[in-house]
Design a protein around this nucleic acid. Sequence first.
DNA 1: AAGTCGGGGAT
DNA 2: ATCCCAGACTT
Length: 340
Amino acid sequence: MYQFLGETLTTFYQSSKQDKPWQLGYSPYQIWIYEIILQQTRMAQGMPYFDKFIKRFPNIETLAKSSLDEVLEQWQGLGYYSRARNLHATARFISENLNNEFPKTYDALIKLKGIGKYTAAAISSFAYGENQYVLDGNVYRVLSRYFGETTEINSSQAPKTFYAYLEKIHKNFDSQILNQSLMDYGAQICTAKLPKCSECKLNLHCVAYLSNQIIHYPQKIKPNKLRNRYFYCVFYLNEDVIYLKKRIEKDIWQDLYQGDMVESEAFPDKRFIFPIKEKDFDLDWSIQRLTHQKIHIKFAIKPIESFDLNTLGEENFYALSELHRIPMPKIIDTFLRNLR
DNA sequence: AAGTCGGGGAT
DNA sequence: ATCCCAGACTT
């Protein structure tokens, strides 16, 4: 089974005409950005951000010299903002401690912030040809179906189980090619929904397919139910100035900007503490469904009074003309855009 | 070992 | 409405 899998994937790779990052002449730095952006993110969503990001920060030095706000601004709308924070911190670390030289080995890469087993393997394999195995969502899916592996892929023991498969598969084949073809196969043929089993060359030995159980693989532990969260958000505003404050809590949207915002148990909340009444929050009510949370925000606009500047802190007021350079959560950004 | 972190697109 | 994506980090 291992030999057949390796041969089939190698053949698939050679017939695939899709351009690979390293074939496009991407530098190790660019492959790093590429892999971070594509964490938990589809190609179609990530690639426009990759192009923008590389154009704005062509190398380690420019990224390291930029402010966190500037990096987050490029990242706005992409989600999982810790990726941008770690990217920025790692760029500065490499610039200050490694003489601007990007680490070249798996062992060095995995010590960097934001780089885990997958990304260390991907960079060291794709940029430097090191013999390492990538294990991502695509690989989990292909292997679990092909071998009929019932270990839940989001369980804590999943990595150990699946790396054992990879070790045997990679034994007689080129790791770089196998890494890329496993992921491409999962993305193009062995897809999560409506897999193309009829044109799949692996189905001769695919345990899930032969037992007609494809739909039940990969197995997964049920996620927790959606958490509802309710926020009130006030924008103190006049013709050319707006109040914005950075979220500093270790919570969703850390380091992004928002209005004067408080969270409540529900709408309406008796403990409401803003200087304007709950009924003034009829301006708009946005709901955003995320993977694990459902965000409800009631927005309000309040003209700036002279005492507001003292109460809220003058440093938190920004010119409207520079609004586009301030990173904000998608739902906040959308509201402010619609305001115009 | 379990929880947390975004947003979008396909079904 | 549900799933899940070229995952990593914290508790």
